[in-house]
Design a protein around this nucleic acid. Structure first.
Ligand SMILES: [Zn+2]
Ligand SMILES: [Zn+2]
Ligand SMILES: [Zn+2]
Ligand SMILES: [Zn+2]
Lengths: 169, 169
DNA sequence: GCTGCTAATGATACATTGTATCACTTCGGC
DNA sequence: GCCGAAGTGATACAATGTATCATTAGCAGC
């Protein structure tokens, strides 16, 4: 509830909402938690909100610079680290890119389904998967971290597109 | 069976066996498949066999150079790509490192359990996990690739070590 | 054995991705 | 206003991965 829950609702409807207002509320919320939402951090989150999908650090940097900013790689990585620590952004190892969390309530198990054609990312929280993984861990005496599994594949849209041009593989 | 099955058995006992002989047999087996096992490729596989764990591309390059070779990054990556295509080596995105496959029978679903303390990697083929993932895929209309999931955590050994120095967290 | 084709290599340079350092600034609390 | 911690900017650098292209090695057919 409260702080984190508010953020979640903000993000969920960000695309359809006035981004500026959402960010202002985010800022207030984070300050309550004792965190500072600075210009750099706000800018980075803003770009990710506007993009609506995953971006690599340097794509993000490009966007920032094209909007008149004078960011540097270090600044971008610092802001991303901040939002990751806050649980609002995930990093995908397989694509070296960053994406807004769809369930930003701190560290959580889950899965990221990544389309290797169009880059779309869907975040899921499938109990069956995380429990199977955790059981595997205990079977092999491994204390697994709570983490996001990255599953790659082809999304429904791309799959349909592919089928039209190359039917019945 | 046959070719691939032979390779698997070779690898399984490589550490306890004479590495040179294993590699010679591997070479014969690959040639039957129409693949060339060249000096570079053999060297890379040899380093991974000797190491017995995961190595980054540049760690591998170091080992090769220290053994008198004059390898380059490109050569190492080419050899690694070859072995990955052959299914004998996996790349771990989360650590940017490469490790011998323990079940080298072509592409296979499975899981890599990676200890973030000591780097140990265990390869598992847990049906429950892969099936749960695949069910999640179909539920979300995602055609998932057959791939290895990377699970990070702390292995039994490191866990025990940690507990001695920092009991009852 | 030669010839000629293809795969692989070596060498070089470059591209991408991520960090370290340190002087300086900003912000919140007193 | 002053202080200390957190954040920034600038610069340089480290780590990871590719492109290119001339040369060489392996193999097939003669
Ligand atoms: Zn999330
Ligand atoms: Zn897609
Ligand atoms: Zn494997
Ligand atoms: Zn360990």
């Amino acid at each position: 509830m409260s702080a984190k829950h508010t953020i979640r609702r903000e993000l969920k409807h960000a695309a359809a909402d006035d981004t500026q207002r959402v960010l202002e509320r985010l800022e207030r919320t984070c300050r309550v938690r004792g965190q500072r939402v600075t210009r750099q951090r706000r800018a980075v989150l803003q770009v990710l909100l506007a993009e609506g999908g995953a971006l690599t650090a340097y794509e993000l940097l490009d966007r920032l610079r094209r909007s008149g900013g004078r960011s540097t790689p270090a600044a971008v990585y610092r802001a991303l680290e901040f939002w990751m620590d806050s649980g609002l952004v995930h990093r995908m190892d397989s694509t070296r890119s960053f994406v807004l969390c769809e369930h930003p309530e701190g560290p959580h198990p889950g899965q990221l389904l990544i389309c290797r054609q169009c880059g779309t990312v869907i975040e899921a929280e499938d109990k069956a998967v995380s429990e199977a993984a955790s059981r595997l861990g205990s079977r092999l005496n491994f204390t697994l971290d709570v983490g996001l599994l990255e599953l790659t594949g082809v999304c429904a849209l791309c799959c349909a597109r592919g089928r039209r041009t190359q039917p019945a593989s």
